[in-house]
Design a protein around this nucleic acid. Sequence first.
DNA 1: TTTTGAGTTGTTCGA
DNA 2: GTCGAACAACTCAAA
Length: 485
Amino acid sequence: MPRSDHAPVILWFRKDLRLTDNAGLVCAAESGRPVIPVYILEPTESGNGPLGAAQAWWLHHSLEALDASLRHIGSRLILRRGPADAVLGALVGETDADRVFWNRRYDPNGIAVDVALKEELTLSGLTVRSFAGQLLHEPTRLKTGSGGPYRVYTPFWRALEASGEPPEPVPAPSRLEAPAQWPQSEALEDWGLRPTAPNWAAEFADVWTPGEAGAEAKLAAFIERGIVGYKSRRDFPALPHTSSLSPHLALGEISPASVWHATRGLGDRVEAEDVIHFRKELAWRDFSYHLLFHFPQLASKNWNERFDAFPWEDAPDLLKRWQRGQTGYPIVDAGMRQLWRHGVMHNRVRMIVASFLIKDLMIDWRLGERWFRDTLVDADPASNAASWQWVAGSGADAAPFFRIFNPISQGEKFDVNGEYIRRFVPELKDMPNSFIHKPFEAPLLVLKEAGVSLGRTYPLPIVDHGKARNVAMAAYQALPRPDET
DNA sequence: TTTTGAGTTGTTCGA
DNA sequence: GTCGAACAACTCAAA
């Protein structure tokens, strides 16, 4: 038998750290050849884009989990650092592999690297194959009637719904053939992905189990309990009715198609409306990638250029107070502290804190985007940028400028009993419900009984929301009209 | 080509 | 306390 029939396949893992519903992996397994799974830690300027500190923690544990899963099917994960072309070139030389498989990624950096790499490897005689699986549908699949990309979510959703279900997930292979000799792997510990001193990620492990099994457990729990009443209850940050799948999806520990199909056939137990609203959230993720694909500067430039003239404040002290959860507005502080402690923030609270940074503090949304990217375990280049622009009003299909969240009424509406506040802002835990969202309006006696001393145990508000709102409205109204630019 | 209906997530004010 | 209107105009998507 000619030697090339047994030349190994290199399977390059990227944002698809899973065995189930992994098209590239299945194809490699079915080739009947030895498979060499590899993960490459690429420099930030190439490949995956900047890796935030919180997500780096996650990645460490996810790679550990992936290696363990691979060992169960007779394989293992090879770890290498460096630019993808150099690393793959070296691996090909060391292993005599003649084909490289991967699943496609859709962020602009990743696309650029992959396109160049595919050409380079193909020219040097290798077979390169890439597969879909990071999104429900690839970002070029849905087009408007005139052939362009969608800019409004609702028509995008209708088109997605009308275009049929995403492909059925494919099962994990039961066995991978090992190469005669494993190439060298770097040690995960040497990558320094976890924080050392101070260990700000100490509580992450209480909340999260990175890896495919953790993702499946979260999904099962959500299908069992969370999805019931999802449409209305998902807005309440103290309730466990969001799926918490975003960090798992961000690194591809579970595929969006698997999640989509898991919400089928739930019968009478779950209202159809709840399923639809959950799927619409999955579709938002696709819509964000659709936007990013067609507007690669989504994270750095206003999608709507009119906003280039917005008079952002240069206020590093206020930015720091926001980052630390010391604004004096309890719902904002609770959200920012949840983010710091758990690497995540409830979706509704994200809107509130984002609105506060942009509209109350008039700080550039890009600074908020950057902070989220560094602190969220679910940091995603498309969702993060698209959502910040949505709140700023500069994005596609964005919030109108007059939609300015009131941090007091949002708190009163969605955290009625202050449960979420008490969890993350313990210095307010004894405040009565009537003032927990606005301690600055509480009579002295109430404060005293709750053990709160404003400006000492809990900050005074750093801005007056009412005044700040008027200033922001005026700034938005003063933006040049499109025909004046 | 032109027209038309519609557009994630809110707040405030006045009747 | 409740309710509807105003808060702006713009641009998209499809007929």
